[in-house]
Design a protein around this nucleic acid. Structure first.
Length: 507
RNA sequence: GGGUCAUUAGCUCAGCUGGUAGAGCAGGAGACUCUUAAUCUCUUGGUCCGGGGUUCGAAUCCCUGAUGACCCA
């Protein structure tokens, strides 16, 4: 037993657990502690679906025999008869147990001694109680797994956020809506997968451990491969590998998986997060905006069942065309006191930024300053779905330059509810331009920006073989799920969010 | 990184100006064959987050640390 396990066990041991442990010991002596030979034929929700419309008399005539298994969530004993609520993966169903309808001793020596939280299996006949609740009249019942720890109080449940995240298993047992959120998350991801498969994209898996972390500006996690004697990084994005595949001739690829960024945690950031990235050859960023709009609209209507997405008290109609606006125009639109001239020269823009008390570095060019002003004054106000386009080249080291205005790139980001949901652009497939931009990033890294990109020579080599004109996009799945499930914190859509270490009891 | 708030029984929470730490649920014993936050009687249970300090006396006031939530950068 490890030191940590020992302290945890000793600290948490209390009378309630000790009593249950004694019951378990008795079960062990009977040789029936952890059986695995019970098989059920029905789920709670399935039974409700099949028999909710049947009357007491119909059920009496039908004599439907079922077996169910799950966790005992409530137990109400009234002398020689009892009710209990059984919870399985689908929902809950009430069981009715009578001493005289069970084999000798099962009721008094078994059931009455079991605890709320125990896992049981039961067989019986469907019926309706006097109050009309669909239930099972049980004639066989077994304890399948003894729960040593008591569940939280049944009425208020588990509300302490810290315990909910640290002991998600208890949260899932007690809070059905939490389960629903994660079921919805699974549905959203399944729908996205289906959508891209239908559009002839191929799902791929690219390295999560990379020698040169690329595809985004962010601080990576470092690790080490002993056998290869090689320093490695957890990926911050799959982008450069996916584009290598486009070079290789997989002209439509997508990947849904984790990326890692060595940054703080907040309601919007988890160190590991799930991203969808996809690349389509012979398409540009306008095509991807159209695709994104269609995808989100169908997600809302097909998965949520409504084109209107409610998020934190605000409604967003996904059936209407999403707004499209350039970074430049959006700054003017949301700042009445800023003129076009104010953000068209670096000197003027610097003054605007200083007035907004944005911390500035000498290395910032006009593009970076514009983006800072945008993030400070516009971003959080973009509630309804809005594509912001034409990001400055300076802050878009992997995006293709605009043909008419080389200061900006053919890039967009999608905002909903004041949050960035997606980022896409026509890809830079000019290897010489890309090499030049990598060199610029390396200079910034050497100047102290630890989020700046590395020079990836193999990626340049791939581009030198010729990447078809391509557009690519990344969508933050966690944030998308937050939006579609109306959750205010990223921790509510990640099953096991990262937290600080639990405090160790001091000796 | 900065600010605000929180941490008391297994869970959900009270605890006022500093004066013997409480309730409900859960648990234990008993009653009860249609309950559903079942009910009724009796009852067990505490490192008041940790560490310092002030005081005759601290869950309460002060300092410090830990963890969490929210806001800001």
């Amino acid at each position: 037993m490890s030191e940590e396990t020992k302290t945890l066990t000793q600290e948490d041991e209390n009378k309630l657990i000790a009593q249950r442990r004694e019951k378990l010991t008795a079960l062990r002596e009977n040789g029936t502690a952890f059986p695995n030979d019970f098989r059920r034929d029905s789920l709670a929700a399935g039974l409700h679906g099949l028999y909710q419309d049947k009357t007491t008399e119909e059920l009496e005539t039908m004599q439907v025999r079922v077996s169910v298994a799950g966790r005992m969530m409530a137990k109400r004993v009234m002398g020689k008869a009892s009710f209990t609520k059984l919870q399985d993966m689908s929902g809950q169903i009430q069981l009715f147990l009578q001493r005289d309808n069970l084999p000798e001793g099962v009721y008094n020596e078994g059931f009455k001694k079991w605890d709320v939280g125990d896992l049981i299996g039961a067989e019986g006949v469907m019926f309706r109680t006097k109050t009309g609740e669909l239930s099972i009249k049980v004639d066989k019942v077994r304890l399948l797994t003894k729960a040593l720890r008591p569940l939280p109080e049944k009425f208020h449940g588990l509300t302490d956020t810290e315990t909910r995240y640290r002991q998600r298993y208890v949260d899932l047992i007690m809070n059905w809506d939490v389960k629903e959120t994660f079921k919805l998350r699974a549905k959203i991801i399944a729908f996205i997968r289906e959508y891209f498969n239908e559009h002839e994209f191929m799902e791929v898996e690219t390295p999560m451990m990379q020698v040169i972390p690329g595809g985004a500006t962010a601080k990576p996690f470092e690790t080490f491969h002993n056998a290869l004697d090689l320093a490695m990084y957890l990926r911050i994005a799959p982008e450069l590998y996916l584009k290598r595949l486009v070079v290789g001739g997989f002209e439509r690829v997508f990947e849904i998986n984790r990326s890692f960024r060595n940054e703080g945690v907040s309601t919007r950031h988890n160190p590991e997060f799930t991203m969808l990235e996809f690349y389509q050859a012979y398409a540009d960023y306008h095509d991807l905006m159209d695709l994104t709009e269609d995808l989100l609209r169908r997600l809302a209507t097909d998965v949520l069942g409504s084109a209107t997405v409610k998020y934190q008290g605000e409604e967003h109609d996904f059936s209407r065309p999403f707004k499209r606006m350039t970074v430049f125009d959006s700054i003017l639109e949301y700042n009445n006191d800023i003129t076009a001239a104010d953000i068209s020269s670096i000197e003027a823009a610097r003054k605007v930024a200083e007035a907004l008390s944005i911390p500035m570095k000498n290395s910032y060019g006009l593009g970076k300053i514009q983006l800072e002003i945008f993030e400070k004054t516009v971003e959080h106000r973009l509630k309804d779905p809005t594509f912001i386009t034409e990001y400055p080249k300076e802050v878009s080291p992997l995006a293709r330059c605009n043909d008419t205005n080389p200061f900006v790139t053919d890039r967009f980001e999608l905002f909903v509810g004041g949050r960035e949901i997606a980022n896409g652009f026509s890809e830079l497939n000019d290897p010489e331009d890309q090499a030049e931009r990598f060199r610029k990033q390396v200079m910034e890294k050497e100047a102290g920006d630890d989020e700046a990109m590395h020079y990836d020579a193999d990626y340049i080599r791939a581009l030198e073989h010729g990447m078809p004109p391509t557009a690519g996009e990344g969508i933050g799945i966690d944030r998308l799920v937050m939006l579609l499930t109306d959750q205010p914190s990223i921790r509510d859509v990640i099953l096991f969010p990262h937290m600080r270490q639990e405090a160790e009891p001091q000796d």
